[in-house]
Amino acid sequence: MDSQANSSTQSFLARNDFLIRRLHSLSGLIPVGAFMVVHLMVNASVLESPAAFQKNVYSIHGLGSLLPVVEWVFIFIPILFHAIVGVVIVAGGMPNNNQYRYAANYRYTLQRATGMLAFFFIMAHVFHMHGWFHADVWLENVVHPLGGAQFKPFNAASTAGLALQGYVWVAVYVIGVLACVYHLANGVWTMGITWGVWTSAAAQARASAVCSVLGVLLAVVGMGALFGIRASGSGEKLEQAIQAEDQMYESKVASGEVKANEHKRRHEEEAEKSESEDDLAALEDQSAGATQRE
């Protein structure tokens, strides 16, 4: 056939469109979606106690020097791949919800909108908590002045909680997390069609119900994590969190389970600096209080 003969003249990307789209679909679930679920559940463990959360963080950081490799290979690169292909897909679509007001059509448009939102949110979130890269030059000259890299793994709940005190950030996180959750839940549903898991209209409707329930549960977990962590960033809870974290750190260092690493702990100066952007009097007070107590 002509179409096959033509394909040699087409670009590599065009020729492998099917494979790329399937990888895109797969990467949305594994590893990106799976990671997100684990991430939200780990974070939600703060609802049990900051110590429980801290314990989970220690087990992740048990990977030691492998951690950055794992992060890049299984998290950042797949997210980037999923996002970049996603942007190309979004650019190729022409939403027509005004003309065709069907539920599935709204979901289609929402999937693209939440994808874009999720992409920007994840970039911001990783910068805000992690800083993207951990090279000193980058951290000192770019990240810290802009208020990024707030999260300190050995003071997990307290540093994350402190970073989430501003209303703007909370709003960003609420929207971002919900966008991610919708994108995943609806993405699982479309993935089942893409790969041919559910085929009949009835099966698709059942799958849609299951995905909706999963989405709602995940949204609850996500919101629980968000507000749980936020709560550990102020008042008495903050104090308790820091205490628990520091105790755990000291005992782990003493037992030799963890090597002492001040980079992964909170520092008063940094904590103060971090307020520079959306400074709120309350946040300042709390930080100050925390400093005093220490």
């Binding site: 469109d17 897909i89 069907y102 599935a104 893409t194």
Partner: peptide, 10 residues
């Protein structure tokens, strides 16, 4: 081909 489908189901 098939991969272009975006599952809008219109």
């Amino acid at each position: 081909g098939l991969q272009v489908c975006g599952n809008a189901q219109n």
